[in-house]
Simulated assay, not measured.
Amino acid sequence: MESDDEDVNFYINRGGFPIQQEYWHKLWKHTKRHHSAKGEEAENQIRGNRSLSKVPVPIAPTITPGMTTEERIICIQNYISDLHYNFTGLQFFEIKKSRPMSGLMEIAKDMIKESLPIKCLEAVILSIYFTCGLEGLDRFPISFKSCFNSHHHRHVVLGIHYSGRYGALGLSRRRTLMYKPLIYRSLMDLIQQYKTSYEECYHELEKVKIGLPVDHSVHSCEPIKWKHVAINYKKSSTDNVRKALEKFSKQIKTKVSQLII
């Protein structure tokens, strides 16, 4: 996305913090381009204006020993939601999926420190960071590809499994495409709920990819396996989707370290 093309959806801050002038320029350029005449007006009202109201800084979740896993999950999701979805046109944190787990966890610490709005991939990294060490909780990335008005959209959440129930942590422009409580009896039920949510947003869900369970060690040198099961909804019957998800689910439940599908 690091491009000056007029079609760019958003830019990525590759310069770290404090944010360099180059990336501030890209942010305001995006604002003016996507908000037409009001974009320049908004820039003039905001840039350098020291009288603007202070934005409250979300407080990182406090996990206490007496909390149940379900309560901890809700606490983590509330914090991620309080950071808000990033509509600025500049993604503040650069996430390289190929980086080892330990490197991504350092970025999670930066997110907490800076308390800036985030997008879905950043929310997944934060969710992994806060759920590391939660005994009995399995975490795995779920990626979606949908289509609306001939335009393709990609999204990702962190699937979770605990005590025979499934759910998900995450962030989205649409509230129905992010957090799902730990209430779903099967992975199929969870994925079908997302499919229904996409349809309610007038999106056609085309593909779903599920990664391997994520290591609980924040110091792991292994990268996250983002893709292990791939489902093409245009080519797969409901029965085939169910079989693939059930096979993956059984191996999670039996704690098989090397999933083979």
Rank of each mutant, 00 (worst) to 15 (best):
Y198I: 11
R139P: 08
I231H: 05
N240D: 15
A168R: 00
S257W: 03
L158A: 03
S53K: 12
M178K: 13
G159T: 06
K247H: 14
A123H: 05
M1H: 14
D110Q: 15
R174V: 06
H84C: 08
E199V: 00
E70G: 04
P117G: 07
L187K: 02
V156L: 03
L52G: 11
K96Y: 11
W226S: 05
P56H: 07
K227V: 14
V157P: 11
S220T: 11
I76K: 01
V214P: 03
S81W: 05
Y162I: 06
I107F: 06
M178S: 15
K234D: 14
I191N: 01
E94G: 01
H34R: 14
R50Y: 09
E70K: 13
E22L: 09
I261A: 03
C147K: 09
P56Q: 05
L90P: 12
G39R: 09
I252H: 05
E199S: 15
I112K: 02
K227N: 11
L27Y: 07
C75F: 00
Y129K: 04
T131D: 00
E135A: 11
A230M: 05
N13C: 06
L182Q: 07
C75R: 12
S146K: 02
T69N: 09
S53E: 13
I118H: 02
C75L: 13
E206T: 12
E6W: 09
V241S: 02
M101G: 01
Y184S: 07
A60H: 06
I183F: 03
V208M: 04
K209F: 10
I118S: 04
D7V: 07
S102K: 15
I12H: 03
S98Q: 13
L190N: 10
R242H: 10
N240G: 00
E199I: 04
L90D: 12
Y202M: 07
I118R: 01
G39H: 11
E40R: 08
G136V: 09
V8T: 14
L245D: 06
Y11I: 02
S150E: 14
S217R: 13
K209N: 12
L126H: 11
P117M: 02
K145C: 12
A60P: 10
C75G: 01
H30I: 05
F130K: 03
V8P: 08
L177W: 04
C201T: 13
S3M: 03
E70R: 10
K180M: 10
A42R: 11
G211A: 05
F144N: 06
P61V: 10
M67N: 10
D110H: 05
Y194I: 08
S257F: 03
K119H: 10
Y162T: 03
L83Q: 11
I224S: 07
S3Y: 04
L121K: 06
Y202I: 06
D7C: 04
G48Q: 09
D239A: 13
S143D: 06
E94I: 01
R174Q: 12
I19V: 15
S249Q: 15
P213V: 13
K207M: 14
G164M: 08
S146R: 01
L137C: 08
C147M: 12
M1P: 08
R14K: 13
K113Y: 11
N78Y: 00
S186I: 07
S127K: 00
T31L: 15
P58W: 04
Y198Q: 07
H203Y: 15
